[in-house]
């Protein structure tokens, strides 16, 4: 589906192609390719080199380390939970934004989502400590209403990290879903309605399956970004919430460059594997055609 949707466009561009134009196209791609090679692939190759400095020793050390395994588990659990929460929260909003009659209102709301992206993670983290702290806003409310006599532990635990990360990553999910949904032909839903399907039925059988690439795009994006979080787990979390970034930082602090590189590469392998599975399930080209539609 994604492939057939993109093919005509590619052909349209390709019509009347001459050899010189092909070279021109390559030249257009060259700066980006050069940058990727120099700034992504070259450092990555160095990290691989560093991780192998004493054979596979660093990998052995890392895999045998209890704190590495704990941080890996915390990273995957947190990322998965935050991804699901973002999806549940973002889907209705993205749907609403796409269904609005008034483009102006929709765009104003969208702008609100984008503005959230401009606030730094550190500022948000401190804001959450004020809201969730022992003498914070939420606890004051709880005690004023009389639900509890003592402040609840809302911070320095997994709950606070999940709240903080979901808050930070929600705009990524909303924007990806919105872009993907806006490429869905709404006449298909109308057709289902005219054929007698109810509102729920036409949504579940027509719109939801069509939005699947957008869901996968959003989830992949949020999950991958979530695996790299450092500040929020470190400042809002408890001892069980030390993520892989925290582990890697600690290794670097002790000058264990090999261990840090090995841990980073193991994480990269895991994220790549997840990406490939997503590819198997939906197809990466669909994934990107979903984002491109916006």
């Amino acid at each position: 589906m994604g492939r057939t949707a993109t093919m005509p466009r590619a052909q349209g561009q390709g019509r009347g192609l001459r050899l010189g134009a092909a070279a021109g196209q390559l030249a257009l791609a060259l700066p980006a390719l050069t940058l990727v090679a120099l700034l992504v692939l070259a450092p990555l190759a160095r990290i691989v080199g560093t991780s192998l400095e004493d054979g596979a020793g660093a990998y052995g050390d890392v895999l045998a380390s209890g704190s590495f395994r704990a941080s890996l588990r915390a990273t995957l659990e947190l990322s998965a939970l935050v991804t699901v929460l973002c999806l549940v929260l973002a889907y209705p909003l993205a749907y609403l934004l796409n269904s609005m009659r008034s483009r102006r209102v929709a765009h104003a709301l969208l702008l609100g989502v984008i503005v959230c992206l401009w606030i730094s993670a550190l500022v948000r983290t401190y804001a959450w400590t004020i809201i969730l702290g022992r003498n914070g806003l939420v606890n004051e409310l709880i005690m004023a209403v009389g639900i509890r006599d003592e402040p609840a532990s809302l911070i320095f635990n997994r709950f606070a990290v999940v709240v903080g990360m979901t808050h930070y990553l929600l705009p990524f999910m909303i924007l990806t879903l919105y872009a993907g949904m806006s490429g869905i032909d709404r006449r298909l839903v109308q057709a289902a309605r005219t054929l007698g399907a109810g509102g729920l039925r036409s949504f579940v059988s027509v719109f939801l399956p069509l939005s699947r690439p957008a869901i996968f795009a959003g989830c992949t994006m949020v999950f991958v970004v979530a695996t790299g979080f450092f500040v929020m787990p470190a400042l809002l979390g408890g001892p069980q919430d030390a993520t892989l970034s925290v582990y890697i930082e600690r290794q670097l602090f002790h000058l264990e460059f090999g261990n840090a590189s090995a841990a980073a590469l193991i994480m990269l392998a895991i994220v790549s594997a997840i990406f490939l599975v997503a590819d198997r399930v939906v197809g990466l080209d669909r994934l990107f055609s979903a984002t491109r539609a916006g």
Partner: peptide
């Protein structure tokens, strides 16, 4: 002994 002590301690903190 620092690196080993830190690793043991990190496991204790997270455990």
């Amino acid at each position: 002994n620092g690196p080993e002590a830190e690793e043991t301690f990190a496991e204790w903190v997270g455990g």
